[in-house]
Design a protein around this nucleic acid. Structure first.
Lengths: 212, 212
DNA sequence: TAGATTGTTAATCGATTAACAATC
DNA sequence: TAGATTGTTAATCGATTAACAATC
């Protein structure tokens, strides 16, 4: 086992392997070749990705599916539940609050905040929307470590700062703006406009007659 | 101007530069150093990203903001409007349909499909939800080139195949599954669970006492 | 002209792939 | 044992960074 800097993409791929493994029987073994093909990567890369974290397989046999799942879940931190707060109960926030997939993966929404007086007190997926003023106190009280920002662009930085101050350790930001957080807070951005622009770039390029 | 393979990340960064430039006055010039700082990259990288597409600046002066915006918009294909279809009018689909940001960037939702009889005929952000059966015909009739899949996981591959067959050129897939499309269809996946798992990986690592 | 800043090359860095000895 | 497949090294590939001649 040798630990260097681990490429972020390797973590993303571990999530993908884990997704594929979920549909595979615990009792059997699987080779790096088979699992790699199912997930759209090379066997070489899969073995390399796993090697960052130790030895998992049996030469000549492959990987014990049950054990491999367990190890990958441990690495990804999804062998336990995480408490999550959602800030911003607009369209996207509401959709995420109702999305079953999070709960299934162990991400439990424990608080939802908004500053719109008409939304405060209503419930969303059986969580009561709270006044954003209560953010700091609630986050501490409910041991919330992950926050999802679905607030409007103008409010995003202020929200991020307050989340960091309240002790949140990781932020998933959907506001289309660069936000700053202390170095100890892990920040990931999901920007839907950027994804669409990626598509339109390819379309425009194809139109101009370049080689894909 | 020299054209090699252009890193996908360079395109993502162009979107970010474009976002920053939107708030900057058309009349002035801006140096690679200033724009790079505002967007969180290096000046060297910014010049490199632009260089893939030609010469934009004036040595000694910097870039004319108005012209730079125009060129980047052209590269990204956001100097025109694109017709978009949304497949799946559930929570996420509804949120995206109501999201103003798309329209502003020139991504115009021209059709929404679902196969739930109770949803068909209702409207979402002034588009009438249509029966998914009408997908092929409608896509052709309305010149839709981009589709967004917000259908359930089980339906995603079938939807993608029908979209490709109908002539869609690019697909943004929100279903947490690997889908296949013909090589000429550009496919981008946005997977919320993977993003959250990226966060939990870092949290779990920090817990185990490793260096961030 | 002197100062500033580009566009581009060459050097560096990091990630992926190929190959294979070790091992079941 | 023969065949299969791992874990890891070395080679390759690609992206980022540093440096600077060209230019305004």
């Amino acid at each position: 086992m040798y630990r260097r800097k681990i490429p972020e993409m390797a973590i993303t791929r571990l999530s993908i392997y884990s997704r594929i493994l979920a549909d595979i029987d615990d009792g059997r073994t699987i080779s790096s070749k088979e699992l790699a093909e199912l997930s759209g990567h090379s066997d070489s890369q899969l073995r390399r990705d796993l090697a960052y974290f130790g030895q998992f397989g049996m030469p000549g046999k492959g990987y014990q599916v049950k054990e491999l799942k367990r190890r990958i879940h441990g690495i990804l931190g999804i062998d336990r539940a995480w408490n999550v707060a959602l800030v911003g109960a607009g369209n996207l926030g509401s959709a995420l609050a109702r999305y079953k997939g999070f709960e299934e993966q162990g991400f439990k929404i424990k608080a939802i905040f908004d500053n719109n007086i008409r939304k405060i007190g209503r419930t969303l997926g059986n969580i009561t929307i709270q006044d954003a003023e209560e953010l700091g106190e609630t986050i501490k009280k409910r041991n919330i470590e992950i926050a999802v920002i679905t607030a409007p662009t103008e409010a995003a930085q202020e929200v991020a700062s307050r989340l960091a101050e309240a002790g949140v350790k990781a932020i998933l930001n959907f506001a289309p703006i660069r936000i700053f957080a202390p170095a100890e807070v892990k920040l990931v951005n999901v920007d839907l406009a950027i994804e669409l622009e990626n598509l339109s770039y390819f379309l425009a390029k194809a139109r101009k007659g370049n080689d894909q």
